[in-house]
Simulated assay, not measured.
Amino acid sequence: MASLSKGIKGWGFTVMIMAVFIAGCSSNSGAAEEQAQSQVTESTTASSGNSSETNQEAETRVVQDEFGDVTIPAYPQRIAGIYVEDYLKALDITPVVQWYNPMWGVQEYLDLDVPQFDTTGSIEALLEYDPDLIIVDGGADMEKYEMYSKVAPTYRLPEDILQDSNQILTTIAEVVGKPDKGKEVVAAYEGKIANAKAKLQEAVGSESVAVVRLNISDNTLALFGIKNRFTGFIYSELGLTPHPLVSEMEEYQEILSEEAIPELDADHIIVFPSNGEWSSPENKEAMKLLDSKLWKSLPAVKNNQVYMMERSYWQSGAITANSMKIDDLLEKMTP
């Protein structure tokens, strides 16, 4: 019996020791799990607390463009603005590329020091520049839009705002997350418009104005209508009076036949080449048209009221380009 009693006591002691050991392991395991969970939480908190830039890059929002809803970065950092670099620069944003066309070159007036993207080549070439947002204008139809969208989230400007540089600027400012800067730029632009309109009205009054482009490729003159996206604002916003040939046009531009040149009896004529500069050797042949008897017979030519403008920004309807056109008009047409 004594031996049995000792055995039972020994077994009980062993069980007690095992229970204490198991309890200790359970306690340690719980503490380890709690500590691990704490580390994950701290790591997540540190990541979100110390990497706001990373979080911003990860955030997205849904906006509506011409073709529907599109998910874009809330804070885009690398923007490609095809044909809308002018607006990005006005918003103090440097795009990752600048559009380039072998026939037209680039918009030199923007003075951008970025790689060129050939719009006549493969859209996939944009992959090299790793944009996180692409903005395109009316030059992108659905097919091109879908191709751009394969490179990066793409926003296509709504068709109904493409005639209004203020609306384009405001829309792009919203898309890139800089609405306040957009309002600031628009306010300054509208102030400049109002000031220029008053000065031009005083200097020119109701005298008629026409804008023509010397087409270098075929030695013709293109008359720009009041709906032209490049120059229509000089009538609609600056209040200049379009020549009857201009005001009656339904198209953005029309080629003037040689017989129609004498009908362009506007008081003031603005002219710029389609390519290059006035001094470019390749433009000499086309410039002979401006030395013809028909051209020299026009009232504006006789009265020294033909203004030779620089084609780069006169062939753009964007807000920076328009501001530069205003400077030209004030310089050429006011005392």
Rank of each mutant, 00 (worst) to 15 (best):
Q163R: 06
D180N: 12
E254F: 09
D160H: 10
H243Q: 06
D160S: 13
A196Q: 01
I234N: 10
E174C: 03
R229A: 11
G232C: 05
A196N: 02
E237I: 12
G205C: 09
S206H: 09
T231P: 05
K150D: 13
K197A: 11
E128K: 07
L169Y: 05
I168T: 05
K181T: 15
Y155G: 02
G177W: 06
G138S: 10
K144N: 15
N215F: 12
G225I: 07
L221V: 07
E207W: 06
S149D: 01
N228G: 03
V175C: 07
V151L: 01
V176P: 04
L240D: 11
F224I: 11
T231D: 11
R213K: 12
V209Q: 00
V151F: 05
E248C: 01
A187W: 02
G225R: 06
I234C: 05
Q163T: 15
V211P: 04
D265F: 00
E248H: 05
G139Q: 10
P262L: 08
D218H: 04
D218A: 13
V151G: 00
T171W: 06
M249F: 04
G182T: 02
A198N: 11
D130M: 14
P131H: 08
A210L: 13
V136A: 07
K183V: 08
T241L: 11
I193Q: 07
L256A: 14
I234W: 01
Q253V: 14
I234R: 01
S149K: 09
L133I: 04
S206F: 00
G138R: 01
A203V: 06
L200V: 12
I134L: 11
E250F: 06
K183Q: 15
D141E: 07
D164T: 00
L223H: 07
E190T: 07
F230H: 09
D180W: 10
Y148N: 10
E237W: 12
V175G: 00
E128D: 14
Q163Y: 11
D132P: 07
L157E: 05
N195G: 14
V175S: 00
G177M: 06
T154G: 12
E263Y: 10
K150H: 03
L169W: 03
V151C: 05
T171Q: 14
T220W: 06
R213M: 15
L169N: 04
L126R: 04
I216T: 15
